[in-house]
Write a protein that binds this DNA or RNA. Structure first.
Ligand code: ZN
Ligand code: ZN
Ligand code: ZN
Ligand code: ZN
Lengths: 144, 144
DNA sequence: CTTGACCTTAGAGTTAACTCTAAGCTTATA
DNA sequence: TATAAGCTTAGAGTTAACTCTAAGGTCAAG
């Protein structure tokens, strides 16, 4: 049985974060001392490590709550349930990457168009593009 | 001179958002009616469109505040200042894309390892990977 | 018996960019 | 002159995942 700071060291989570996860039902201390100190078993540590691993991959706390409930009773949950959660997360990630890549292209085009030199910004093509009200990537066929 | 809802139609921003931007110094109504109604000039519209364009590209409100102060007096600001802001934003975007791509690879590997079928999750390789405490991408050379 | 490190709780603060609510005033239209 | 649409403000709520604070209790070492 280890205390919260030791669990923190083992998992790389801060005691604050561990308590926060507990409040959200992700982590539990299977024992408390008389004074109320949390004590964690080996199984508690494994659960906390599971949470940490899932978090590192990018799962949300809600996703993790679902994965943990599957973990608690694997026989009554299917691989499909697990892949559904995973695929859904992957979809979100793909969507976000696509959005960011659009920004990336816009920013790269802006940078390519401007010298970046010490001359004043009177004729800066970045400013001009923004003033034209169009993103440099979205600028396809707006008027005839 | 147009009212706030018309500015909203022209820019695709809601009146709420326009007032929010005003509170943060991005947009201003150059006139108010006696009753206090905001009235926007052509120049105000162009400024709002600038904000909208910059926002669409992904600039933060703080970035936009800087770009606007350059726009107000282009002769005393350089192209370099403009590219600095743009490059800094691009760096952030690139960094975020890299993080998301790491997640993407992890999630893809997880999905590849699991059948996703209706069998129960007792031997689910996704669960096993998470229980091993390692992300499937970060799993290089941890022990000897 | 006194430090000092660590633990407890409830609850507030952080970040970004909105988004909405309440309560009341204005304005155009029928 | 109603009625409805639209405007005003201040301020609260939203989201996610922490992060920190305050005020106090516990415990091992010297
Ligand atoms: Zn289920
Ligand atoms: Zn330039
Ligand atoms: Zn400057
Ligand atoms: Zn599986």
């Amino acid at each position: 049985m280890i205390k919260i700071s030791e669990l923190g060291e083992k998992t790389g989570l801060s005691p604050h974060t561990i308590r926060f996860y507990e409040k959200h039902g992700l982590i539990e201390a299977s024992q408390r001392s008389e004074a109320g100190y949390r004590f964690y078993s080996e199984a508690d540590v494994r659960r906390a490590e599971f949470v940490k691993a899932a978090r590192s991959i990018g799962f949300s706390l809600d996703d993790i709550a679902q994965l943990l409930s599957i973990r608690l009773d694997k026989t009554s949950h299917s691989c499909q349930e697990v892949t559904d959660i995973t695929r859904h997360k992957l979809d979100e990630v793909n969507e976000r990457i696509a959005e960011l890549q659009t920004m990336q292209r816009s920013l790269q085009l802006l940078l390519k168009s401007c010298s970046g030199g010490p001359e004043n910004a009177t004729h800066c093509s970045i400013m001009e593009t923004l003033e034209a009200g169009s993103s440099p990537v979205t600028e396809r066929g707006d008027e005839s």
